[in-house]
C-alpha cells in the first residue's frame, strides 16, 4: 500500500477541522476557566512578588517573599504535615469508600440499602464545625470513647494532648466524614454492571466473594484512579478540619499549610505572604498530581 507523504502540519490542520464540532463542545468551559481561574491566578502570582500594600501602589520585591517562606521552619513543618496527612487520608478514604460501596452493593433489600447509604453519606453534608466539635467531645477525656476504654479496663487516652495521637485522630475523622462521598461515586460504577455477568461467573463456579474480586473491584478501578488523581489536587488543602480540631499539643504534627497561610497571612493582612505560600502549595500540588498520574498509568490501563 502506498503511503503518500504528507506534511505533518497539514495533517494536523485536517484533524483540527475534522474535530471542529467537538472543540466547540468544550469551548464554553475553556472560556470560563480562562476568566475565572487563569486570570485571577496570574493576578495572584503578581501579588506574591510584591510587598503587601493594600492601599496604594505595592512595591515589587521579586522572590523575597518566597525566600523568607522557604526558610521558615514552621511553614516547612506545616507543608510536611499537610503532605503526610493529605496523602494517607486520600488513600484511606478511597479504600473505605470502596469497602462501603461493595458492602452496599451486596445488600438485597432496597430499603436497607437506601437508609444505610443516606446515613453514611450525611456526615459529608455537615460542616467540620459541627462534625469536628462532636468528635472533639466524643474523644475527650470524659467522652464516649474513653468511657468505653474504662469499661474495658484499659487506660484512658488523651487524644488531643498527646502528640502521637494527633495524626491518627485526623486521619480517622477525615475518613469518617468523607468515605460516604467516595462510596456514592464508586457505587455509580458498580450499579451499571449487568447482573448477567455475575451469573455467568457463578455458573462457572465462582463464589460470591470471588465474583466481587473478579468483577466488582476491576469495574471500580477506573473510577478509583480518577478519584486518586482528583484527590491528589486536594491533598494539601486541609483547612476546616484542622481549624476546628487542632490543639496546641498536637499542632506541630497536624497544623496544615492552609492553616499557616490563614494565621500568618490572612489574619495579619499580609497578602504577599498568603499568595506566595499559596503559590508554593500550587507548585507542590502540581508535582504530586504528576506523580500520581505517572504511577497509575504505570499500571498499564487505557486511562489517560
Amino acid at each position: 500500500m502506498q503511503i503518500s507523504p504528507r506534511r505533518p502540519s497539514s495533517l494536523l490542520r485536517r484533524r483540527l477541522r475534522q474535530y471542529r464540532a467537538i472543540y466547540l463542545m468544550i469551548l464554553p468551559v475553556l472560556v470560563y476557566f480562562l476568566i475565572f481561574s487563569f486570570y485571577p491566578l496570574i493576578l495572584g502570582l503578581v501579588q506574591s512578588l510584591q510587598k503587601e500594600r493594600l492601599l496604594g501602589t505595592p512595591q515589587f520585591i521579586g522572590l523575597a517573599n518566597y525566600q523568607s517562606l522557604l526558610r521558615d521552619r514552621n511553614f516547612l513543618q506545616a507543608l510536611w504535615n499537610s503532605l503526610y496527612i493529605g496523602s494517607f487520608s486520600l488513600v484511606i478514604n478511597i479504600f473505605t469508600g470502596m469497602v462501603l460501596a461493595v458492602s452496599l452493593n451486596e445488600l438485597r433489600s432496597r430499603a436497607v440499602k437506601a437508609t444505610v447509604q443516606t446515613v453514611t453519606f450525611l456526615p459529608y453534608l455537615f460542616s467540620w464545625t459541627v462534625v469536628g466539635g462532636v468528635w472533639v467531645y466524643v474523644l475527650s477525656h470524659n467522652g464516649l470513647v474513653n468511657g468505653m476504654l474504662d469499661a474495658l479496663g484499659l487506660d484512658r487516652i488523651s487524644f488531643f494532648t498527646v502528640p502521637a495521637w494527633g495524626r491518627p485522630v485526623m486521619l480517622f475523622t477525615n475518613a469518617w466524614k468523607q468515605s460516604g462521598y467516595f462510596a456514592v461515586l464508586l457505587l455509580a460504577s458498580l450499579v451499571g454492571i449487568d447482573p448477567e455477568v455475575y451469573e455467568a461467573a457463578h455458573i462457572d463456579g465462582a463464589s460470591r466473594l470471588q465474583q466481587i474480586g473478579r468483577i466488582s473491584l476491576p469495574m471500580m478501578l477506573p473510577t478509583v484512579k480518577t478519584l486518586l488523581l482528583l484527590g491528589a489536587t486536594g491533598v494539601l488543602r486541609n483547612f476546616d478540619q484542622v481549624l476546628i480540631m487542632s490543639r496546641p499539643a498536637i499542632k506541630d504534627k497536624v497544623g496544615s499549610v492552609l492553616l499557616f497561610i490563614y494565621e500568618q497571612g490572612i489574619l495579619k493582612m499580609k497578602i504577599g505572604l498568603a499568595t506566595s505560600a499559596a503559590a508554593v502549595v500550587l507548585a507542590a500540588t502540581f508535582l504530586i498530581a504528576l506523580a500520581v498520574r505517572r504511577a497509575s498509568r504505570y499500571e498499564g490501563s487505557l486511562y489517560d
Binding site: V29, L30, F33, F36, S37, F38, Y39, P40, L41, L43, G44, L45, Q47, S48, L229, L230, T233, G234, L236, R237, L258, I261, Y262, G265, I266, I271, A274, T275, A277, A278, A279, V281, L282, T285, F286, A289
Partner: peptide
C-alpha cells in the same frame, strides 16, 4: 489544563476574584 484548575488554592486568588 482542566486538572490544573483544580489545584489553584483559594488564597492565591482571594483578592483577584
Amino acid at each position: 489544563l482542566i486538572l490544573f484548575t483544580l489545584m489553584i488554592p483559594g488564597d492565591l486568588t482571594l483578592i483577584s476574584i
